[in-house]
């Protein structure tokens, strides 16, 4: 994994650290849920190992993989240095545009519970088209109309031709 290029090495180190921290954290949270679950989960099922075994193996594996990634990240990072200025954006996993789009999708879902799927989809679609048109330096009002049209066509296809209850 170690490349000679220090910029790449430090990027890989940061990736390892992020992935490792995520795995260890997730394993810890899920383990808390798993071991505190009441009911029949931790019963003895005789010859059969029972429903608790596989999650436990997987949580242990996840934690171990996470630790290994952390160690490797520290190790490479120590050699190559973590802060390489030209690559600072990788510190956060998300770039700006994608974060905005993701937020838009989530917002559309909340809107959906109030207004129904059709209006939420049309709104999100118009905003998405505007966002993309801005990147492409094109007319925004036109993009909004295009977005609504796309939503209307797809909605009609699913709702009326396939009979999917998108309400």
């Amino acid at each position: 994994m170690i490349r000679r290029d220090p910029a790449i090495a430090s990027r890989e180190a940061r990736r390892d650290l992020a992935a490792g921290a995520f795995s260890v954290g997730l394993a810890a949270c899920l383990a808390a849920v798993h071991f505190r679950q009441a009911g029949r989960l931790h019963d003895d099922y005789g010859a059969e190992p029972g429903p608790a075994l596989l999650p436990e193996i997987l949580l242990a594996a996840l934690a171990l993989i996470g630790l290994a990634l952390l160690l490797r990240g520290f190790w490479i990072g120590r050699i190559a240095g973590l802060a390489s200025r030209e690559q600072k954006e990788i510190g956060s996993a998300f770039g700006r545009a994608s974060l905005v789009v993701l937020g838009l999708l989530v917002a559309a879902m909340f809107l959906q519970s109030a207004t129904g799927f059709g209006i939420a989809a049309a709104t999100a679609s118009a905003l998405l088209a505007i966002l993309l048109a801005r990147q492409e330096l094109r007319s925004l009002p036109r993009a909004a109309i295009e977005g609504v049209l796309v939503a209307a066509i797809l909605y009609a296809l699913f709702r009326f031709i396939l009979g999917v209850p998108l309400t």
């Binding site: 709702r159 031709i161 009979g163 999917v164």
Partner: peptide, 12 residues
Amino acid sequence: IAAALALAGAAT
């Protein structure tokens, strides 16, 4: 999966 009659459109 989920399914629906082709009638759904007409139903509306």
